[in-house]
Design a protein around this nucleic acid. Sequence first.
DNA 1: CTCAGTAAT
Length: 693
Amino acid sequence: MSQFWKPGAEKPRILDDEEGGVLFLSSSASSSGYGYVSIEKQRQRLPVYKYRTAILYLVEHHATTVIVGETGSGKTTQIPQYLKEAGWADGGRTIACTQPRRLAVQAVASRVAEEMEVKLGEEVGYTIRFEDVTDANKTRIKFLTDGVLLREMMDDPLLTKYSVIMVDEAHERSVSTDIVLGLLKKIQKCRPELRLIVASATIEAKAMAAFFQTRKRRTTKLVESTTSEESAILSVEGRGYNVEIHYVEEPVSDYLQAAVSTVQLIHDKEPYGDILVFLTGQDDIDAAVKLINEEAPNGGKNSSGLFALPLYSGLSRAEQELIFSPTPRGKRKVVISTNIAETSLTLEGIVYVVDSGFSKQRFYNPISDIENLIVSPISKASARQRAGRAGRVRPGKCYRLYTEEYFLKEMSAQGIPEIQRSNLVSSVIQLKALGIDNILGFNWLAAPSPETMIRALEVLYSLGVLDDDAKLTSPIGFQVAEIPLDPMISKMILASNELGCSEEALTIAAVLSIQSIWVSGKGIQKELDEAKLRFAAAEGDHVTFLNVYKAFLQSGKSSQWCYKNYINYQSMKKVLEIREQLRRIAQRLGIALKSCGDMQAVRKAATSGFFSNACQLEAYSHNGMYKTVRTSQEVYIHPSSVLFRVNPKWIVYHSIVSTDRQYMRNVVSIDPSWLTEVAPHFYRQQAPNPFIH
DNA sequence: CTCAGTAAT
């Protein structure tokens, strides 16, 4: 195979499968090396290398190329380099490659810079939120999160600086990926010279290719022309080891117990190698860890050598480090994890996977406007991804706690894309800001329900972000769109400008944007509650956050101080970062930075953003039952709130978590007269609503 | 009386 594909060179062999024009090349097995190998040799050993010519051919001749590549194929690091070598970055143009996660962007960018022997941030750079390691004049290959690409479109709607955009991990179908793909299809119409590569780990390739097809296929053969508007599909094998799949013979009723006994079975019968167990949430995981460690007490001479560790996002730094420390000789590590280990984290040394077949998934109900976390069956795609985690170091085994028949006949192939399970308020305002007027008619890869879209339009209308024609209002709509936050929080910031408390609003906005500022943990509940009391404000959680933030600054941003006060230091660092970004944006929007110390102004600003989340305590309620003003739903203050058991008469909440009850997280007390004051259109009778007739 | 995972010039 020639090292560089040149126009006019013999084109690669194409096997048309009569369905999608799938291209295969016979693969001669690549041997793994021993000892020192040059970077160039390493690159040539990656499975994707055999397809170099084919990929460049397809990109040259097709507006869109869909590449199906398993993990370990090298597609992410190699394809951008091939494109650059073939001249796609000549004349000051840039090749973009998006990822759903920040960590992946950083990791891939530094790997590619290393391979190209250039300094990161020059020829090869990356951009993620809070970090722009690029040089506008020098960067020719740029890695970025798809969320950042979306933001870039606000300044440059046609993304003119990019010659090729590769959207990686498209099978994950994150909200941003779906929106980016829909917008790129639109951009293609105006920029026929733009090339798209959609890289996906699973079969959804055909649906993806069909989506980008701008013209009906004329024949089953690939049409020869300068550029085909048809999309091409290419398949690249991966480099994982074989994973033997085992199913249970009968359905299990208790997957927690089944997981624990499977772990013990593996430990008794199978050779060394660590185990990864997928369960659904913190509770199950902690219980399973306890069961395993009790049945196999470790440390003594008679220890079985089996020890279990939990893994979920809420873990502290120290607990996370345990997971990654190598397993001592003669021991076997069991990591019990949420689906964080499915994509976001890679553990070394895993040989066995136990898959419960479930994960917690978000579901959004546009009628109640509540997002729920529900334990749901995973898709085949997820099941394969989980199994693949066993084959990274040597051939492995995956034990599925469901029957083969269930896998074959009942499990859905792909699962519901996130965009169809989410509140769309943030997405809709982004599309509006990009000039997409007809949200319902947008070319969605998977259209959300009309109810969800209409609900999002209603919320934006009630916030004064959209006018009667569903167009962004000026200036409020455009300002809210500029701020990278939930529109309700952005509205709070805008309102704080007039109320003279923008400094406070920025702090609250930053804290509301992260999971929690408190440390999490089971055994320390009492201590945590006591620590909270030191900062607790009678007005509610928002004011409590201000107290914490102020004290944190006074401590000199000390991690020791955080430790003593049961505050998560990592979270506080994130708060500082987000607040700094918001401060810059606020200044650009002409918001004066003012602090007034008047908590009534602060609560009023919060009400201006969250008036639609107002709740009233039920009269004579002895158990703290509230009803939402908008829909009269039963809700309760979350036990983590400083207002839990305080139960002021009127409150607004930031969000609801739904378990056996609907719990309001982050609440602040208000005066009900503020509701009609800040949102008269919403709280006066029979407010005209242009979206519902 | 409590919480899957990501992400935003």
